[in-house]
Amino acid sequence: MSLPASPRLPSGPRRRSLLASAAGAALLVGCSGGSDSGDPDGGPSATERARARAARDSEVLAGRYTAVIAAHPGLAERLRPLREDVLRHAEAFGAVRAPSPEASPSVSARAAGPQDGSETVPPSGVPAREKDALALLADAERELAGRRTGVLAEVPGELARLLASVAAAGAAHVYLLTEGDG
Rank of each mutant, 00 (worst) to 15 (best):
S58V: 02
P105R: 13
E143K: 14
T149P: 00
L177Y: 13
A67L: 13
A90T: 02
P156C: 14
R56G: 01
A76G: 04
S2L: 10
L79T: 00
L134P: 12
L27K: 00
G182M: 07
G146E: 14
E141G: 05
E59L: 15
R148S: 05
L75Y: 05
L75I: 03
E141C: 10
G12Q: 08
R51N: 10
S118D: 08
D57M: 01
D181Y: 08
G180V: 15
L28V: 06
D116P: 11
A112K: 10
A54N: 08
R161Y: 00
V29I: 05
A128L: 13
S2A: 09
A20G: 12
L176Y: 14
S118N: 06
P4S: 14
A112D: 12
P101W: 06
E77M: 05
A160F: 04
H72M: 01
L82S: 12
G113R: 09
L27D: 04
L162C: 01
S2K: 07
S32W: 09
A140I: 08
T149Y: 04
L136T: 08
D139V: 03
E143F: 05
A5M: 12
V60L: 05
P10F: 05
G180C: 13
P40E: 07
R97T: 10
V29E: 01
A26H: 06
A140C: 09
A164P: 07
P81L: 11
P44H: 06
S108G: 03
G30A: 02
D57Q: 09
M1H: 03
G24W: 01
L3M: 08
I69T: 00
A71N: 11
V68A: 02
E179L: 15
L152T: 05
S37G: 09
D39P: 12
L136W: 05
V107C: 10
T120S: 07
S118F: 03
C31K: 02
L136R: 09
L162Y: 00
R88L: 06
A145F: 01
G42N: 00
A55E: 03
R14L: 07
G182L: 12
L163P: 00
S124K: 10
S6D: 15
R51Q: 14
S124A: 13
P99K: 01
S11Y: 10
P7L: 03
E77N: 12
P105C: 11
S100I: 01
H89E: 04
G125A: 15
F93C: 03
D39W: 08
L28F: 03
V121K: 14
T178P: 08
A70L: 12
L176I: 09
L152K: 09
L19V: 03
R129P: 11
G38K: 02
A50W: 02
G113P: 07
E158Y: 01
P44K: 10
L9V: 14
R78F: 00
S100V: 00
V174R: 11
A135F: 14
A160K: 03
A76W: 01
A164W: 09
R78C: 02
R80G: 07
E179Q: 15
E102Q: 10
R8L: 13
G42T: 00
G33L: 09
D132T: 15
E179R: 15
L9W: 13
L19W: 02
A164N: 02
S6T: 04
L163H: 05
G33V: 07
D39N: 14
H72I: 01
G117A: 10
S2W: 08
